[in-house]
């Protein structure tokens, strides 16, 4: 056994007491701070539930067609969504989609600026990268439990956990995309006397967009991967059905809800990927330069 060099009990106690202190003194404030996020999530959820099913099907099939300009993907999307409806999973699917959308949109707002910052400063990247490793590998329960202690069980900790888990790939890919922009184009822009802002929005971001979109795709997928865990602390949706299926040993319920998650993942993954590919083709990237 490894020898006991120091007594770690005071350290553990300090961490626990610290968290308790935060919950007692700052719980209300933190909850209020996260309230806009909750409003946002609820708004998306109400919107999706209020929209007639056929309209949502039409929109997603339409997006799939716009992204690929052929009939294969729209048919896949149509079959997938009809399956969802027939299996009586529509409502749960919309709740899950709302959580995924809220988490993805928030992650985009947070991650892209951080990714931009990472691409511009070696130092920032050195600091942020280990934090991202931590966010991706730390078992989510480790931060879910404090989050539940602070916010109480419900949608807020579920949403926060999903954001924490889903943002890292987008930050990494934004950083990577910006750093890999063809230096010849950057130099040309510089030679014409651009300002850093003109260069960022006129050259770097547009050229990095395919990579950034790949990041958004990853974020969407990881947000969907979190739904079962999120449902354990009160997120509802398809994850909750899976959880109930396990709890009641109803294999069929778990199986169909699980398939529902897979179907959502396929629909959103294929659509976002198709848009990424379209952009790349337009730029002529991926061809021999």
């Amino acid at each position: 056994m490894f020898p006991e060099l120091i007594d770690t009990r005071p350290l553990r106690r300090a961490v626990d007491d610290g968290l308790n202190w935060v919950v007692r003194n700052w719980g209300g404030e933190l909850e209020a701070a996260a309230y806009p996020l909750l409003m946002f999530l609820n708004w998306i959820e109400r919107l999706l539930l209020a929209t007639p099913w056929w309209l949502i099907v039409a929109i997603l099939v339409g997006l799939a067609f716009l992204a690929t300009r052929n009939w294969k993907l729209p048919v896949v999307v149509l079959v997938a969504l009809v399956f969802m409806g027939i299996m009586e999973l529509w409502r749960d699917a919309m709740v899950t989609t709302a959580l995924m959308l809220a988490a993805t949109l928030t992650a985009i707002v947070i991650s892209i600026p951080i990714g931009v910052w990472m691409s511009r400063s070696m130092r920032v990247r050195q600091i942020v990268t280990p934090v991202l490793d931590l966010m991706q590998t730390m078992p989510s329960f480790v931060y879910l439990i404090p989050a539940v202690m602070i916010f109480g069980p419900g949608k807020i900790p579920a949403l926060l956990a999903t954001i924490v888990y889903a943002s890292p790939p987008l930050m990494r890919l934004t950083d990577l995309g910006l750093r890999n922009v063809d230096p010849a184009v950057m130099e040309a822009s510089r030679a014409f006397g651009d300002t850093p802002t003109q260069r960022l929005f006129g050259v770097q971001v547009p050229l990095a967009l395919p990579t950034i979109l790949a990041g958004v795709n990853q974020t969407t997928m990881m947000a969907l991967a979190m739904v079962v865990i999120a449902s354990m602390i009160g997120a509802g949706g398809l994850g909750y059905q899976v959880l109930q299926g396990i709890g009641r040993l109803e294999v069929s319920r778990g199986l169909f809800a699980g398939l529902g998650i897979v179907v959502l993942a396929i629909v959103f993954d294929r659509i976002t990927q198709a848009y990424g590919k379209r952009l790349q083709e337009r730029f002529g990237l991926g061809e021999v330069r």
Partner: peptide, 22 residues
């Protein structure tokens, strides 16, 4: 001043073109 100078007094053509693909 350098930015103004590059914008108004001098223009450049590159071996690798440096065009905006989008």
């Amino acid at each position: 001043q350098l930015r103004t100078f590059r914008r108004t007094s001098i223009a450049m053509v590159f071996q690798k073109f440096g065009l905006l693909p989008h």
